[in-house]
């Protein structure tokens, strides 16, 4: 087990290097720092000095890979690749356009993001699994049929509609909770309840249908027939046997997103004015703040790889048949 974990962690290193190279290529080779400077300063009437100054302020005035003018290790370290890309590995993300330290910003914004994403995830999983179990219990009845129809209809509605409609109905028309905003203390719940609710509702359609398919596939297997033949009630079969065995395919899709919860949701956070990482990313995209986008891409892929490893570990937890040989 331990050896397997070590091997997986080692395997993550070349992938992260690959991600790093892709982002480097996107941000510095497809577009030279000169292009970025012109973009930020405005394309027209920009002097060469202004571009040089912009680059020098951000440390973009170095050569890409090899600095022939420097001496010793400086040949490698005094380059854009080393200062901007390789430094990401040690958690040094540099500064945003407004001069703030990105790493600090990320640490403070992680809390609000999690406050939204974690309840949405847990509640959403619970609700959809329950609904899917219900549809599987009433399979081949009108309830099941219309449930699936409703699911297909719900998954055809744009996520933007859920947010805009929910805000209009609950906050503007019924005035139950504030439209948007956030507060750090205990009274944050009234800001959180609407985004969490909308997040759960918008996910119902596709997840319920997906889990229902998994449950139905499991119900058709031989051990279920055996369990019924023993005289177990249908509910006992569903909860004690089908649910536990269906956990394996469900986990594949679910565990991998758990680390990504830290990143928050772009849409929800920007509509509800939550000062989390999602709205941070959106603001950076709209302000064309390349340093922040680069940092978020890197963190995102680290978290995704962590999620993949967690998925593998969770397999052996839910299914004792799976063992990792080293």
């Amino acid at each position: 087990m331990f050896a397997y974990l070590v091997r997986r962690l080692l395997y993550a290193i070349p992938i992260l290097i690959g991600v790093n190279l892709i982002t480097f290529a996107l941000f510095f080779i497809v577009n030279t720092p000169d292009d970025m400077a012109r973009m930020q300063l405005g394309v027209k009437r920009v002097t060469a000095e202004a571009i040089e100054k912009w680059k020098a302020e951000r440390g973009y005035d170095k050569p890409l890979f090899v600095n022939a003018q420097a001496s010793g290790v400086g040949v490698v370290t005094e380059t854009i690749f080393f200062t901007k890309s390789a430094r990401l590995f040690v958690g040094d993300f540099g500064r945003a356009e407004d001069g703030r330290d990105i790493a600090r910003e990320i640490r403070t914004r992680m809390g609000p993001s999690l406050a939204i994403a974690l309840p949405t995830f847990v509640l959403g999983l619970f609700v959809t699994v329950c609904l899917a179990l219900m549809l599987a219990f009433f399979r081949a009845t009108p309830l099941d049929f219309w449930g699936v129809v409703l699911c297909v209809a719900m998954m055809s509605i744009s996520g933007l509609f859920y947010i805009i409609g929910g805000q209009y109905l609950i906050s503007k028309l019924w005035r139950l909770v504030p439209i948007s905003g956030f507060s750090a203390g205990l009274d944050a719940w009234k800001f959180l309840i609407l985004p969490v609710l909308i997040g759960v509702v918008s996910g119902i359609g596709s997840s319920t249908r997906w889990y229902r398919t998994i449950f139905l596939e499991e119900i058709g297997k031989d051990y279920v027939r055996t369990a019924r033949a023993k005289g177990l009630s249908e509910l006992a079969v569903l909860f004690r046997h089908v649910l536990r065995n269906a956990l394996i395919p469900i986990l594949t899709g679910v565990v991998v997103v758990i680390p990504l919860l830290f990143m928050g949701s772009l849409l929800t956070e920007s509509f509800f004015g939550i000062p989390g990482l999602g709205s941070y990313t959106i603001d950076a995209i709209q302000a064309q703040d390349f340093a922040v986008v680069r940092a978020m891409v890197f963190i995102g892929s680290v978290l995704y790889i962590v999620g993949l490893i967690l998925t593998d570990l969770s397999y052996s937890w839910v299914d004792p048949r799976i063992r990792f040989e080293s």
Binding site: I15, N31, D35, R38, V293, V297, S301, Y304
Partner: peptide, 22 residues
Amino acid sequence: SSIPGVLLIAAAVLMMQVVIDT
């Protein structure tokens, strides 16, 4: 696939905008 989709799209689209604008 280990880069979250939206972020990869955001990075690539930002870069494409620079290319088109210049």
